[in-house]
Amino acid sequence: MSSIGTGYDLSASQFSPDGRVFQIDYASKAVEKSGTVIALRGKDGVVLAVEKIVTSKLYEDDAATRVFTVDKNIGIAIAGLHADGRYIVDIARQEAQNYRSQWNANLDFEKGDRTIPLKILVERVSAYIHAYTLYSAVRPFGVTVIIASWNQEDGPQLYKIEPSGTYFGYLACASGKAKQQAKTEMEKLKLGDMTTEEIVKNAGKIIYQVHDELKDKDFRLELSIVGKETNGLYQMNPEKWLNMASEAGQAAKMDDDSDNDI
């Protein structure tokens, strides 16, 4: 670590002479320790999948969940510090609500209700995260935020925001421990024209494949989808899709293991 002892890593408001803000690098380190999170965008839907590492058998099954609902058709998955992530989710919910109160003229909750366009939500949340990389009194957020939505007009949408506040739109993205491995798997896929069933199965496969049994014993698959198949509603751990993903994942894992034996 070139930063240690130089004094340039103590504040988020100061550059190092070679042009880095070390506090942001450290925040990214916090993300790299997290269980893997991936997202795949298909033809008419997006799937978010999380490798939730179970650090103790004493936790309840639904403890420390890492997928969240922001609005009817918008969901977030987080990698990194859990508490930071939850706070960002709350910010996103407020932004979604703020957009509603300013721009949603149609008060019918079921018909014609307009949620915040994902592009705008991501702009706002990323601006917020970025603001925490500018001042000495605060630390950056130790999270990467993956945001997904679907609607009739814009189709499937997927964005990822880094601790620095930078964001990009993706066909597929990954964050956390096995980010590189997951990306390699994703590059093999024909993204963009896959059906919801295909992206769900592939998401399950990737999470099971990248899970490191030796370092982390147990994990739970968390999965959420939004798309045409869910009538434009964001759903967390829907039984049908969750089972489909974990079955595909377990099958892929079995295949891999038997390959290794030979």
């Binding site: 969240f68 922001v70 009817k72 919910r93 609500q97 109160s101 008060l107 909750f109």
Partner: peptide, 13 residues
């Protein structure tokens, strides 16, 4: 009505 809609979103969340 806006507040009620907000409450419904909170319930979903």
């Amino acid at each position: 009505q806006r507040s009620i809609n907000d409450k419904m979103i909170d319930d979903i969340c």
